[in-house]
Design a protein around this nucleic acid. Structure first.
Lengths: 152, 152
DNA sequence: CTTGACCTTAGACTATACTCTAAGGTCTAG
DNA sequence: CTAGACCTTAGAGTATAGTCTAAGGTCAAG
């Protein structure tokens, strides 16, 4: 199949497939007379493998390692793959924690502000970013707290 | 004070301050005879304001809006600031949810793999990324599950 | 008067992962 | 035979936010 077909079947774009080829992740098994990239079922599996890995949050560099393990499994051990996954778990977990902290801070910031059409003269958000003590200016509106949904 | 001093006191680097100047976020109140940037206390407040905003996860573009509100408060209303904060809360919340899903998937991926020095011939991670059904190969090790800490 | 710390500029480079463009060749249906 | 869909390449552009370099000027201390 040609690149357009592989794109359709793998969920990657033709552009991206060419880009991945430049990065050494996947290349067509053959070329047609007219120099078109020709892919087979094996290539499709590889493309899907890459797509799935990317969707799991792995970087192209990490995908490259997975691909090399996949290409010669007996030459590798499970730890090779698991180490990458474990590290990613740590990284993602860390990132989530950071973002949760940011979220809490954002809620504090936002909740103190009335958000109405009052002049921003005493806007709590600007004040807080300016390091002035956080004062509650929500009062000139019907204190509507409870907008916190997903702070862990 | 010169840029180095402002850098020290604001927590931003001199490089970054010059970069922010190019982006129109902050500029020295004056220049010395020798063309050095000279900042005053007001500039320091601004630099800190930017730093705090960045730490809260706001983009430079959003910081720019905050700065313009701050520069002329009566010309703005609280909603101008709160809208940005609310949108950021939505974005960060969404991002966290996505990452939590990735984290769950990563745990599934990782937990099925023994991670030992066994050949990767039947490595569950590679298999799963290859879309073969997830089989449990942890058994040739003392099934050590419970490595999940922070999946929400 | 020299050394070293600090400052200046424009512009290039980093990271990550694409995404698109220009200019052209190929193929298929009507 | 021609239109339109598809393919080719090298290389530039996008997004975000810095980070660094080269080549040079300034300034205070010793």
């Amino acid at each position: 199949m040609k690149i357009g077909e592989l794109a359709k079947q793998s969920g990657l774009s033709a552009h991206t497939l060419r880009f991945y080829e430049k990065q050494g992740l996947i290349s067509p098994s053959t070329r047609s007379e007219s120099n078109y990239r020709i892919y087979n079922q094996n290539d499709l599996s590889t493309a899907k493998f890459i797509k799935r890995s990317r969707d799991m949050g792995f970087s192209l560099e990490e995908v490259e390692v997975f691909l090399s393990i996949r290409a010669d499994k007996p030459a590798h051990i499970c730890a090779d793959a698991k180490d990458i996954a474990q590290q990613k778990i740590v990284d993602v977990g860390q990132k989530i924690k950071e973002m949760q902290q940011v979220l809490v801070a954002l809620h504090k910031l936002s909740d103190a502000c009335c958000g109405g059409s009052e002049s921003a003269e005493f806007c709590s958000i600007i004040e807080a970013l300016d390091d002035r003590p956080l004062t509650d200016h929500t009062s000139h509106q019907d204190k509507q707290v409870g907008t916190k949904e997903d702070v862990a």
